[in-house]
Design a protein around this nucleic acid. Structure first.
Lengths: 169, 169
DNA sequence: TATTGTTATACTCTATAACTATA
DNA sequence: TATAGTTATAGAGTATAACAATA
């Protein structure tokens, strides 16, 4: 109920002193605010880094998981990426259309497709990982290994607070 | 160029052993991946917390900044929230339509509007902050103060790597 | 009956260009 | 000329329902 000391200007219908800068002291109390702002930077820079390869964040993540888990099914990939099966279809269409992966019928369950990378897919995987490593070097800007581990631990802690799937946002 | 030891299954067009679970070891090398997953959880839970108040993440942030910086202009708010002026219009419309804020003409610059909270706006601000504090308690799940500060420092470091505006993602 | 992949649809968020009224 | 707010529009991202084929 108490209000932030620093932020507040004066009371009702105050004048908009133009040159003055906006205080976000109240929002900065919250860790979620900092995460959101940082994530915006990460996302923007990552997409820039992936653009020359014709990839976006989702298509990149999907390609990596398919190369690392060849033969997995669309439903498994959808769950791993935390996207709806329906929305994954166009992502897979895109990767398949560029001959980066193949959709292979599963003999033992003819409803399902096994996703496998092509040679081109594996090559793009290597280039994408190099690009993303460069991107991380850029945005981390000399962050210590200790801090990195602390962040990863903290993010995992937050992730655990949710039951599992995190949609609905 | 080297490949993750843990992740890889066998080679070309392998079988999709159904029960097996998907490895994201390669992606977990990257801090951005952890931030994204955590942010998804934060966003989903925050929106749940704000729903009873009729607020979303943006409208909440906008309301907080308007209460803390009464009299600021839309363009200032747009910059502070890192959204386009054009997209802020509907957000402001929404808050104004609910009589949480007012758009007041600036006498010294008749192009601009000064944004001011109403009494109802200030009251909802208080309730929203309470709700968000509860949300943070929930998702942080006993994170130590030390870790929190480390995370905030790390997120600020990432934010600094960008020139300022972080759009284009 | 349930599940896999699919289509269609809708709703949010975001980016861009162009307009108006003022400066 | 430039700026503040606005409108319109298009592209992502995402959620839901319903369908065909298969289990």
């Amino acid at each position: 109920m108490k209000r932030p000391a620093a932020a507040r200007r004066d009371a009702a219908t105050s004048a908009p002193e133009a040159g003055q800068q906006v205080s976000d002291d109240t929002l900065r109390e919250f860790i979620g605010y900092h995460i959101k702002r940082a994530f915006n930077v990460v996302q923007a820079d990552l997409n820039q880094a992936l653009k020359p390869l014709g990839l976006r964040m989702v298509t990149y993540s999907a390609l990596v998981l398919i190369v690392d888990n060849p033969g997995l099914r669309q439903s498994q990939l959808a769950e791993a990426l935390d996207v709806e099966r329906a929305n994954l279809v166009v992502i897979i269409d895109e990767l398949e259309g560029r001959d980066l992966i193949t959709r292979d019928r599963v003999p033992t369950d003819r409803r399902a497709y096994a996703l496998n990378p092509t040679l081109a897919g594996r090559r793009l995987y290597d280039r994408a990982l190099e690009a993303v490593r460069g991107h991380e070097r850029r945005i981390l800007n000399g962050m210590t290994e200790e801090t990195k581990l602390a962040v990863i631990g903290a993010m995992s802690l937050i992730r655990q607070s949710s039951g599992g799937g995190s949609k609905g946002g």
